[in-house]
Amino acid sequence: MNAAIKLFMVIVIGVEISFIQSVPLNLCILAVSCCYLLIKRVSIKSLLYLIIYPIIPATGLLVSQLFYGIQGPIIGWVLFTRLFAYVWLGATFTMTTNIKDLAFTLEQNFRLPSKFAYGVLTAFNLVPRIITEVQTIRHASLMRGVTMQLWSPKLYFKAILAAINWSSDLSQAMISHGFVEDAPRTHVEKTTIRWSDFAIFAFWLILVQVPIFVF
């Protein structure tokens, strides 16, 4: 399915469940998302992560409603299941699509100027380096007798400074590799939008409404 349409669909459903207080609805979304991820053969490890990750915040929301909620415990369970629904719903997008697909389709099918698509993509590609950089900064400063805690402002500042230098490097790199703002490019990986994309979009959107009326 086209990445942008898929993202839009997932967001619409996500926003919708934010306004509807229904445990069955959340559970349905959870179940469907789970099936989808299984069909797509997402690794067991990732699935486990999806179960464990939301536990703390979801429990926090639940307990808080039990203590202070004025509409009874049901809201607590709505919030609890909703958080899981968000995470699993989000995973149907993030675990089966990558940012490259999204950038490519936004560029090719939605007329997003290529400088935005590739600018953000390039920046995203730097994430592993930023993480290594933060670790290396801490290590390098230990060698100089300075301990930098994770919350030390200097660490952030240094990381942002490095980022600023990279932004200049990266744009020079792109230009040196022939990138020209607003100029046409060819595409090896062509992205498309088919009628079936819209059909799937409509299908799931309608299906989501079913539990609302059933329960």
Partner: peptide, 22 residues
């Protein structure tokens, strides 16, 4: 909105995000 500025703005957001994530 030059290429460089777009990359830089995105990077600033990402650095903030990565720090938050860490």
């Amino acid at each position: 909105w030059s290429l460089r500025n777009i990359i830089l703005i995105a990077l600033i957001a990402i650095v903030c995000g990565v720090i938050f994530w860490l």
